[in-house]
Simulated assay, not measured.
Amino acid sequence: MTVHSAAVKTTIRALLTGLLCLVSLSAAAVELDDLYEAQVSVNSQAQAERQRALEQVFEQMVVKVTGNSGVLSEDAVKRAKGQVSDYLVQYGYRNENSQQWLWASFDESKVNSLLRTIDAPIWGNRRPRLMVWMAQEQNDGTRDIIASDSTTVMKQQLLNRARERGVPVALPLMDLTDRMRVSVTDVWGRFEQPLQRAAQRYTADGLLMTRVYRSTDPDTNGDWVFEWQAIVGNERVYGREVGNDPALMAAPLVDSVAEKLAELYGIRSSDAESDALTIRVLQLNSIDSVLSVEKFLASLSIVKQVDLLEFGDGKAEFTLQLHGDAKRAQQTISLDRRMQIINDNPFAAVASVPEYQWQN
């Protein structure tokens, strides 16, 4: 038996509205709960120091949301920074490792309205987790993989900037399991298959493959080079950073990665006319599972509205009203491992009715 839209909505919402608050999300892609928050170190709680810090925190938050530091040069953002209290929700102080920090959170709706006026990308809070495979060539020619227990400044800077920019990352343990699966040659050569296989134990959504070496090119004057490639699904972005100190190059690396990913997944007000996308989801054997899928879809920043068209025989069809195009919506949906596409590549052209299998 197949039940159609009106009956489904009336029955589900009348009988099971309370269940919505009990349905939890456990996405593979990381859901950032601090996207509109940031913190900076301070020397005191004096008023002048607080105002300066709040403006810095506002800038840091805007860059995290957009993925692009270039927006800070926009006049509208400069004016907003000068009126930071208009966007402020709350702030406070905390102490970590003998350092005092000012923390603040900002109004999501007001910030997004500001960013739309300058057509900046708004990169939602569901972001791909990148497995970082980084090999560094030492002065003596040997090469090492940067592991999670590394004590180098470069590794710590990588993690700090990734946290600041809202780019979820993981570094390999390089224990016996990793060493049996991956060699430094695999990382240096950016060989995808062994790195993808080894990354499965870390539940990553993509790879960030980087090699670090001292250039012999006279044009770069012997500087250090970071060559990187990030892969999420079938999307690939590349970059190259050059500097004279590898310990200080991890931050520009993360900045470039964030900017490229924000261009892929961010939503601009000038994007093509909003699309509608109909999808079919299988393996929905209870109303609870339908509610779970509906709540998941509604949580995506690219989705304006979710309408349940029909439900029956273990499957449901939903129509999604979107901010932007359908292909980008499919990319965003596929970041969650519970939604396994079964009749199309989610990063290729959009199918007429893409089918997903719900694996809760």
Rank of each mutant, 00 (worst) to 15 (best):
residue 120 A to Q: 02
residue 24 S to E: 12
residue 303 V to R: 12
residue 104 A to C: 04
residue 343 N to D: 14
residue 282 L to I: 01
residue 155 K to H: 07
residue 126 R to S: 05
residue 238 Y to F: 13
residue 337 R to D: 09
residue 259 E to L: 07
residue 91 Y to D: 08
residue 267 I to L: 03
residue 48 A to E: 14
residue 181 R to D: 07
residue 182 V to N: 06
residue 348 A to P: 11
residue 18 G to K: 13
residue 201 R to Y: 07
residue 277 L to M: 06
residue 272 A to K: 09
residue 37 E to P: 00
residue 280 R to W: 08
residue 291 L to K: 10
residue 162 A to V: 12
residue 266 G to E: 00
residue 322 L to R: 10
residue 210 T to Y: 11
residue 323 H to L: 05
residue 105 S to R: 09
residue 225 V to P: 05
residue 194 P to T: 02
residue 134 M to K: 11
residue 360 N to D: 13
residue 307 D to K: 06
residue 258 A to Q: 13
residue 216 T to Q: 13
residue 220 T to D: 11
residue 79 R to W: 01
residue 256 S to P: 00
residue 242 V to A: 04
residue 211 R to W: 06
residue 186 D to G: 07
residue 76 A to Q: 09
residue 62 V to F: 11
residue 195 L to A: 05
residue 210 T to A: 10
residue 189 G to R: 03
residue 278 T to F: 08
residue 326 A to M: 05
residue 336 D to T: 13
residue 230 A to T: 11
residue 338 R to D: 12
residue 312 G to K: 09
residue 344 D to V: 03
residue 30 V to E: 15
residue 131 M to K: 13
residue 78 K to Y: 00
residue 155 K to D: 01
residue 48 A to T: 12
residue 202 Y to F: 05
residue 33 D to P: 00
residue 141 G to Y: 10
residue 257 V to L: 13
residue 77 V to P: 08
residue 256 S to K: 14
residue 3 V to K: 12
residue 55 E to P: 04
residue 293 V to S: 07
residue 301 S to W: 09
residue 205 D to G: 15
residue 9 K to E: 03
residue 352 S to R: 15
residue 254 V to A: 12
residue 311 F to L: 10
residue 239 G to C: 02
residue 338 R to W: 12
residue 283 Q to C: 02
residue 303 V to Y: 07
residue 141 G to A: 05
residue 34 D to I: 04
residue 169 V to I: 15
residue 244 N to M: 05
residue 267 I to C: 01
residue 342 I to T: 14
residue 243 G to V: 08
residue 354 P to D: 07
residue 40 V to M: 13
residue 48 A to C: 04
residue 74 E to W: 03
residue 43 N to W: 08
residue 1 M to G: 08
residue 71 V to K: 10
residue 346 P to D: 11
residue 213 Y to H: 07
residue 157 Q to L: 12
residue 46 A to K: 15
residue 193 Q to G: 06
residue 197 R to Q: 10
residue 105 S to D: 00
residue 101 W to K: 11
residue 175 D to P: 08
residue 234 N to K: 09
residue 228 W to D: 00
